[in-house]
Amino acid sequence: MAKKKRARTRDIVAEGLYIASAATRLSLKNTILVHILAEGEDFDLERYLPEARAALEALAAEAEADAARTATERRRARGRHYDSDGTHDYRARDVRNLRRREKQSLHVAEQLRLRAADDAELRLLIADARDAAWAEVAKNIDRTLRIEASRPDLDPDYARMRTARMQALRLVDLPKLRAQRRSAKAQRVLRESGEVPEVVESGGAHRGAIDPAELE
């Protein structure tokens, strides 16, 4: 049972460290993009060491603050034996879990501070953030080129889609256009023969003409 609890604690701590590292990479990636794209700077890994260290230390401080809050809640819950009124209304039976949460937060904070003090670890983090920034830039460039410089020979589906478009033109658009032209021609012949009164396009009829609404 003790081994299982230790394994669970290791998993939770590892997850916390992973989330912290991911958040730091995202922050560094955005900073790199701003400095290089908006400000025109050259990439210098050493330049981002202070920012990476500060980000990890800030997350460590958050973990320590969470541990302190949990410790306060644990002390308050120790003498409470009545039913809980809500999710964060802890009671004596919650003391063990609260102590475990406190230790986990402190362990995450400890590991984050160790990483913040390790320049080699920080360089790996910055390199990952740089790769993520380059990947985002490449993706945006590729999307822009596909939109603005699209060519049939670069589109693998062009031939198949062209066949479908031509079929739609032949089977749908052209018959519809022919029907419209036949209808317009028939109306013109009838007007010229006097069988159908001419209607002014603006909606008003000639004097003495029959209002089509009267035929309904």
Rank of each mutant, 00 (worst) to 15 (best):
R162V: 01
E148S: 09
I126Y: 03
K5W: 01
D131V: 04
L59P: 01
A14H: 08
R207H: 13
R181D: 11
A52N: 11
Y48R: 09
D128T: 09
R100Y: 02
Y18I: 07
E121V: 06
L145D: 15
L125H: 06
L37I: 11
W134D: 14
T24Q: 06
S183Y: 10
A149V: 04
T70N: 03
Q187N: 13
N97F: 00
S202P: 05
S27D: 09
D89V: 01
H81K: 14
A77T: 06
L37Q: 08
L177Y: 06
R188V: 01
A60Y: 00
R165M: 12
A55D: 08
L26N: 11
A52Y: 05
L145M: 12
H107Y: 01
L33E: 11
E41I: 05
A135S: 12
R96S: 07
A109F: 04
L37D: 04
R165P: 00
R6Q: 15
E136S: 12
K29Q: 15
T72Q: 15
K176M: 12
G204L: 10
L59G: 01
R47N: 08
R53V: 08
R191F: 05
A71S: 14
E201Q: 11
P197F: 03
S193H: 08
R181P: 03
G204W: 08
I141S: 02
D118H: 08
G86N: 07
K4S: 12
K103M: 04
D85P: 06
E201T: 12
R191I: 10
D66A: 14
K176P: 02
R113I: 00
L114E: 15
R99E: 13
Q104Y: 00
T24F: 02
E148I: 01
E195C: 06
H88R: 11
R130L: 10
A138P: 03
D44G: 00
R151K: 12
A133R: 04
E102L: 05
L124N: 15
R181L: 15
I141Y: 06
L154T: 11
E121M: 06
T70Y: 01
R146C: 05
R162H: 09
N30K: 13
R100I: 04
R80P: 00
R74N: 04
I36R: 14
A7T: 12
G40R: 01
S193T: 13
W134L: 14
P197G: 08
E39A: 10
A68R: 12
A14E: 15
T9M: 08
K176R: 15
E110N: 06
Q104P: 07
R143V: 05
E51I: 14
L154N: 13
D119K: 09
P197L: 00
P152F: 05
Y18A: 11
D42H: 06
A109Q: 02
K4L: 12
